[in-house]
Structures are given as structure tokens and as C-alpha cells.
Amino acid sequence: MDKRVRIAKRVAKELHDGDVVNLGIGMPTLVANYLSHGVSIVLHSENGFLGIGPEPQSELADKDLVNAGGKPVTIQENGCCFDSAMSFAIIRGGHVDTTVLGALEVDEQGNLANWMVPGKRISGMGGAMDLVVGAKKIIIAMEHNNKDGTVKIVKQCSLPLTAQAEVDLIITDMAVIAVQKDGLHLIEIAEDTTLEEVVAATGAQLIFSEDNIRIF
């Protein structure tokens, strides 16, 4: 299975019927395709509406209706629109149940770096810092390591932070890791990997008891 699909499917299991969810641009948007049967969620778009629907056929695209990545979308029957202050009040005020974002680095304290790399062209943080501080549950969805094999789950982030100690769960193609006060708890590993491989591919201390690790 494609790594991205595997991650998206596993993230989808974390979402419950009725949840208000913000999915980051890129791979996290795939999560909406894999919701469990009977689970319906309300997707929040930080540019100012609730109820993101599927991408329209190109001839039906509305110039005034795009997602936070600027791509044409539709709005569902239960949707509603608002300005940017309301949009971020929804985020910061704890009215978003879950946000799913990618990461450059996550560390043992739940610190997240995902907005800039010193020396590389800067894009800006957009709404990421507010989302990570404000949503009730922060799920990081990413490939376990960088393409060159370097680790992304580290003891301490070296890149500029997006937010401090806010990450709750890390879901990768290899593992599911819960961030708790005492560190990173390995709770699941992928069916085609081993405990040893996960430990070797992780740059941080993983807490686990071998008998309790589930397979996904």
C-alpha cells in the first residue's frame, strides 16, 4: 500500500462522528477519503468556512470557494461562512476537535517544527501556529523519516518551532506514537515492519512494552 494512503487510513481511525476537523494541506487532506463507516465529520477551512465538500468538477468550480491551499472545493449543506477573526476564534478557542498536520521534526516534549528551515526560502507560518496551539488534539501525519533517511522524530527539535509541547499523536508509515508527559509511547507498528526497525528509524527514546504493541 502507498505510504501516504496507509498513514491517511490510520489517521482516519482517530476521528469520531461529529468531530470538527482541520486537515493540513497535502497528505492530511487524504484522510477525509478514509473515514470509517457511519463517521461524518465537519471540516474547517481556515480561510473562513465550515463544511468543506469534495473537489468540484472543473467547470463547476466557484471563484469564491477555495480551501486553505487555494484549490476549488465545494461547501456542504451544513456549511457556513465567516471572517478570518471568527475562523481563528474557532481554532484558538478550542472548538476544533482535531487538526492533522505534517512535520519537519517532532520531539520527545511534543514540540513541533514544520514551518521553516534556516537558510531555505521562507514561506511563512500561515495558520499553522494557531492550529497547533488551539485545536484540542494535534495529530502529526508524516513519513517516519526524510527521503534521505535522516530522522524526523528527535530528542529535541533543532529547527525553529511552530509550537511548544502541543503534539498529541504521531502517525507515520511505520508507527503510531503517543506523546505523553514522560515521553514518546510507541503503541502500534505497521504490519510490514519490526520493533527493531522502528527503534532504529527513530531519533528519540521510545517507551513501550513489547507485549502491548499492536499491529496496524
Binding site: 481556515e46 471572517d83 478570518s84 477573526a85 475562523s87 481563528f88 481554532i91 484558538r92 526560502r121 521562507i122 514561506s123 511563512g124 507560518m125 500561515g126 495558520g127 499553522a128 501556529m129 494557531d130 488551539g134
Partner: peptide, 20 residues
């Protein structure tokens, strides 16, 4: 991004919710 790096343009980057 290039103008920011080369100091041609002063860019104050602010989280979107803060800017609002």
C-alpha cells in the same frame, strides 16, 4: 521570499489568526 532574504522588502511574518 527572495526580496525578504536579500533585504529588498521588510516582511513581518505573523501567524494568520494573530494578524486577523
Amino acid at each position: 521570499g527572495r526580496c525578504m532574504e536579500e533585504g529588498e522588502l521588510k516582511i513581518v511574518l505573523t501567524p494568520q489568526g494573530t494578524l486577523a
